[in-house]
Protein backbone atom coordinates (compact mmCIF):
# COMPACT_ATOMS: atom_id res chain seq x y z
CA UNK A 1 0.00 0.00 0.00
CA UNK A 2 3.02 2.27 -0.25
CA UNK A 3 2.09 3.48 -3.70
CA UNK A 4 -1.44 4.29 -2.67
CA UNK A 5 -0.54 7.43 -0.80
CA UNK A 6 0.72 9.13 -3.90
CA UNK A 7 -2.39 8.36 -5.95
CA UNK A 8 -4.66 9.68 -3.27
CA UNK A 9 -3.52 13.27 -3.34
CA UNK A 10 -6.05 15.69 -4.68
CA UNK A 11 -4.53 18.38 -6.86
CA UNK A 12 -6.06 21.16 -8.89
CA UNK A 13 -5.58 18.84 -11.82
CA UNK A 14 -8.14 16.37 -10.44
CA UNK A 15 -10.72 19.09 -10.93
CA UNK A 16 -9.38 20.82 -14.01
CA UNK A 17 -8.91 17.63 -16.00
CA UNK A 18 -12.66 17.24 -16.44
CA UNK A 19 -13.17 20.90 -17.24
CA UNK A 20 -10.72 21.20 -20.06
CA UNK A 21 -8.24 18.50 -21.06
CA UNK A 22 -10.74 15.64 -20.79
CA UNK A 23 -13.87 17.68 -21.36
CA UNK A 24 -16.61 15.05 -21.63
CA UNK A 25 -18.37 16.72 -24.56
CA UNK A 26 -15.73 18.38 -26.70
CA UNK A 27 -12.92 15.90 -26.20
CA UNK A 28 -14.53 12.58 -25.34
CA UNK A 29 -17.82 13.11 -27.24
CA UNK A 30 -19.89 11.57 -24.46
CA UNK A 31 -23.42 12.37 -23.43
CA UNK A 32 -24.32 14.02 -26.72
CA UNK A 33 -28.07 13.60 -26.49
CA UNK A 34 -28.77 16.16 -23.74
CA UNK A 35 -26.05 18.43 -25.14
CA UNK A 36 -27.91 18.75 -28.40
CA UNK A 37 -31.44 18.54 -27.12
CA UNK A 38 -31.74 21.01 -24.25
CA UNK A 39 -29.35 23.76 -25.34
CA UNK A 40 -31.86 25.92 -27.17
CA UNK A 41 -31.63 28.46 -24.34
CA UNK A 42 -29.02 29.37 -21.74
CA UNK A 43 -31.40 28.75 -18.85
CA UNK A 44 -32.12 25.18 -19.97
CA UNK A 45 -28.41 24.59 -20.45
CA UNK A 46 -27.58 25.74 -16.93
CA UNK A 47 -30.39 23.69 -15.38
CA UNK A 48 -29.35 20.56 -17.26
CA UNK A 49 -25.69 21.09 -16.33
CA UNK A 50 -26.47 21.54 -12.64
CA UNK A 51 -28.81 18.53 -12.57
CA UNK A 52 -26.23 16.31 -14.26
CA UNK A 53 -23.46 17.56 -11.93
CA UNK A 54 -25.61 16.74 -8.92
CA UNK A 55 -26.25 13.21 -10.13
CA UNK A 56 -22.58 12.83 -11.02
CA UNK A 57 -21.43 13.88 -7.55
CA UNK A 58 -24.08 11.88 -5.72
CA UNK A 59 -23.48 8.68 -7.63
CA UNK A 60 -19.69 9.11 -7.48
CA UNK A 61 -19.82 9.45 -3.70
CA UNK A 62 -22.04 6.44 -3.19
CA UNK A 63 -20.19 4.23 -5.65
CA UNK A 64 -16.89 5.23 -4.10
CA UNK A 65 -18.14 4.53 -0.56
CA UNK A 66 -19.50 1.14 -1.59
CA UNK A 67 -16.60 0.19 -3.81
CA UNK A 68 -15.40 -2.61 -1.53
CA UNK A 69 -18.92 -3.94 -0.93
CA UNK A 70 -20.26 -4.23 -4.47
CA UNK A 71 -19.50 -7.62 -6.03
CA UNK A 72 -17.63 -7.40 -9.33
CA UNK A 73 -20.19 -9.40 -11.33
CA UNK A 74 -23.17 -7.17 -10.69
CA UNK A 75 -21.39 -3.84 -10.49
CA UNK A 76 -22.87 -2.28 -13.63
CA UNK A 77 -26.41 -3.12 -12.55
CA UNK A 78 -25.69 -1.69 -9.10
CA UNK A 79 -24.29 1.51 -10.58
CA UNK A 80 -27.35 1.96 -12.76
CA UNK A 81 -29.69 1.53 -9.80
CA UNK A 82 -27.66 4.05 -7.77
CA UNK A 83 -27.70 6.54 -10.65
CA UNK A 84 -31.41 6.02 -11.25
CA UNK A 85 -32.09 6.78 -7.58
CA UNK A 86 -30.30 10.13 -7.78
CA UNK A 87 -32.00 10.96 -11.07
CA UNK A 88 -35.40 10.31 -9.51
CA UNK A 89 -34.46 12.72 -6.69
CA UNK A 90 -33.40 15.42 -9.18
CA UNK A 91 -36.54 14.83 -11.20
CA UNK A 92 -38.77 15.54 -8.21
CA UNK A 93 -36.64 18.50 -7.03
CA UNK A 94 -36.88 20.25 -10.40
CA UNK A 95 -40.62 19.58 -10.50
CA UNK A 96 -40.91 21.23 -7.09
CA UNK A 97 -38.75 24.26 -7.98
CA UNK A 98 -40.08 25.19 -11.39
CA UNK A 99 -42.70 23.43 -13.42
CA UNK A 100 -41.88 25.55 -16.50
CA UNK A 101 -38.29 24.40 -16.42
CA UNK A 102 -39.44 20.83 -15.91
CA UNK A 103 -41.63 21.02 -18.99
CA UNK A 104 -38.88 22.69 -21.03
CA UNK A 105 -36.37 19.95 -20.23
CA UNK A 106 -38.98 17.25 -20.70
CA UNK A 107 -37.88 13.65 -20.65
CA UNK A 108 -34.23 14.64 -20.71
CA UNK A 109 -34.07 14.93 -16.93
CA UNK A 110 -35.01 11.29 -16.56
CA UNK A 111 -32.73 10.41 -19.43
CA UNK A 112 -29.73 11.52 -17.32
CA UNK A 113 -29.79 7.85 -16.24
CA UNK A 114 -28.44 6.76 -19.61
CA UNK A 115 -25.92 9.60 -19.90
CA UNK A 116 -22.72 7.73 -20.63
CA UNK A 117 -20.60 10.28 -18.72
CA UNK A 118 -22.07 9.26 -15.39
CA UNK A 119 -21.85 5.49 -15.84
CA UNK A 120 -18.40 5.96 -17.33
CA UNK A 121 -17.21 7.94 -14.32
CA UNK A 122 -18.69 5.41 -11.90
CA UNK A 123 -16.97 2.53 -13.64
CA UNK A 124 -13.65 4.12 -14.51
CA UNK A 125 -13.03 6.49 -11.61
CA UNK A 126 -15.36 6.38 -8.60
CA UNK A 127 -15.02 2.62 -8.17
CA UNK A 128 -11.24 2.97 -7.87
CA UNK A 129 -10.77 6.12 -5.78
CA UNK A 130 -11.49 7.56 -2.35
CA UNK A 131 -14.85 9.34 -1.95
CA UNK A 132 -13.36 12.83 -1.62
CA UNK A 133 -11.25 12.48 -4.72
CA UNK A 134 -14.17 11.00 -6.65
CA UNK A 135 -16.31 13.98 -5.63
CA UNK A 136 -13.70 16.53 -6.74
CA UNK A 137 -13.28 14.77 -10.04
CA UNK A 138 -17.03 14.46 -10.45
CA UNK A 139 -17.36 18.17 -9.81
CA UNK A 140 -14.75 18.84 -12.50
CA UNK A 141 -16.51 16.62 -15.01
CA UNK A 142 -19.83 18.26 -14.16
CA UNK A 143 -18.31 21.71 -14.60
CA UNK A 144 -16.85 20.67 -17.94
CA UNK A 145 -20.24 19.34 -19.03
CA UNK A 146 -21.98 22.54 -17.91
CA UNK A 147 -19.36 24.63 -19.72
CA UNK A 148 -20.00 22.73 -22.93
CA UNK A 149 -23.75 23.11 -22.54
CA UNK A 150 -23.27 26.85 -21.99
CA UNK A 151 -21.07 27.14 -25.07
CA UNK A 152 -23.86 25.66 -27.16
CA UNK A 153 -26.74 27.27 -25.32
CA UNK A 154 -25.43 30.82 -25.55
CA UNK A 155 -24.71 30.64 -29.28
CA UNK A 156 -28.04 29.04 -30.05
CA UNK A 157 -30.09 31.43 -27.94
CA UNK A 158 -28.19 34.47 -29.21
CA UNK A 159 -28.69 33.60 -32.87
CA UNK A 160 -31.96 31.73 -32.60
CA UNK A 161 -33.98 34.24 -30.62
CA UNK A 162 -31.67 37.25 -30.30
CA UNK A 163 -31.67 37.06 -26.52
CA UNK A 164 -29.36 35.95 -23.75
CA UNK A 165 -30.97 34.57 -20.58
CA UNK A 166 -34.20 36.10 -21.81
CA UNK A 167 -32.80 39.65 -22.25
CA UNK A 168 -32.83 41.11 -25.73
CA UNK A 169 -29.35 41.68 -27.13
CA UNK A 170 -29.71 42.83 -30.70
CA UNK A 171 -32.78 45.01 -30.36
CA UNK A 172 -36.08 44.63 -32.16
CA UNK A 173 -34.72 44.86 -35.72
CA UNK A 174 -32.92 41.55 -35.41
CA UNK A 175 -34.44 38.78 -37.48
CA UNK A 176 -33.86 35.58 -35.45
CA UNK A 177 -32.30 32.57 -37.16
CA UNK A 178 -35.06 30.23 -36.14
CA UNK A 179 -33.14 27.20 -37.38
CA UNK A 180 -30.71 27.64 -34.49
CA UNK A 181 -33.26 26.79 -31.83
CA UNK A 182 -34.66 23.96 -33.94
CA UNK A 183 -32.98 20.53 -33.96
CA UNK A 184 -30.62 21.15 -36.95
CA UNK A 185 -29.13 24.14 -35.11
CA UNK A 186 -27.89 21.86 -32.35
CA UNK A 187 -25.92 19.75 -34.79
CA UNK A 188 -24.55 22.79 -36.62
CA UNK A 189 -23.43 24.65 -33.50
CA UNK A 190 -21.75 21.62 -31.92
CA UNK A 191 -20.08 20.87 -35.25
CA UNK A 192 -18.94 24.49 -35.39
CA UNK A 193 -17.41 24.36 -31.90
CA UNK A 194 -15.57 21.15 -32.76
CA UNK A 195 -14.26 22.80 -35.94
CA UNK A 196 -13.01 25.75 -33.90
CA UNK A 197 -11.22 23.49 -31.41
CA UNK A 198 -9.67 21.43 -34.19
CA UNK A 199 -8.49 24.61 -35.87
CA UNK A 200 -6.93 25.93 -32.64
CA UNK A 201 -5.25 22.61 -32.02
CA UNK A 202 -3.84 22.44 -35.52
CA UNK A 203 -2.55 26.01 -35.31
CA UNK A 204 -0.86 25.27 -31.99
CA UNK A 205 0.80 22.20 -33.44
CA UNK A 206 2.00 24.18 -36.44
CA UNK A 207 3.55 26.92 -34.30
CA UNK A 208 5.22 24.29 -32.15
CA UNK A 209 6.77 22.71 -35.22
CA UNK A 210 7.91 26.15 -36.42
CA UNK A 211 9.47 26.98 -33.06
CA UNK A 212 11.23 23.66 -33.00
CA UNK A 213 12.68 24.39 -36.44
CA UNK A 214 13.80 27.86 -35.37
CA UNK A 215 15.50 26.49 -32.29
CA UNK A 216 17.73 24.31 -34.43
Amino acid sequence: MAGRKKDDTITADTFLEGVWRENPVFVMLLGMCPVLAVTNSVMNAIAMGVATTFVLIGSSTLVSLLRHVIPKQVRIATYIVIIATFVTIVDYIIQAISLDLYNALGAFIQLIVVNCIILGRAEAYASKNRPLKAVVSGLGMGAGFTLALLCLGSVRELLGSGTLLGFSVFGSQFEPWVVMILPPGGFFVLGGWLLLFNWLKERKEKTEVKEALHAR
Binding site: P184, F187, F188, G191, L194, E202
Partner: peptide, 18 residues
Amino acid sequence: SISQGAALSLMLAGILSL
Protein backbone atom coordinates in the same frame (compact mmCIF):
# COMPACT_ATOMS: atom_id res chain seq x y z
CA SER B 1 -8.06 18.37 -42.22
CA ILE B 2 -9.71 20.28 -39.37
CA SER B 3 -13.18 19.10 -40.32
CA GLN B 4 -12.35 15.41 -40.37
CA GLY B 5 -14.14 13.11 -37.95
CA ALA B 6 -16.87 14.17 -35.56
CA ALA B 7 -17.17 17.77 -36.75
CA LEU B 8 -18.02 16.76 -40.29
CA SER B 9 -20.41 14.02 -39.13
CA LEU B 10 -22.26 16.56 -36.99
CA MET B 11 -22.58 18.98 -39.89
CA LEU B 12 -23.95 16.15 -42.03
CA ALA B 13 -26.40 15.20 -39.29
CA GLY B 14 -27.49 18.84 -39.18
CA ILE B 15 -28.27 18.84 -42.89
CA LEU B 16 -30.15 15.53 -42.56
CA SER B 17 -32.08 16.96 -39.65
CA LEU B 18 -32.87 20.03 -41.74
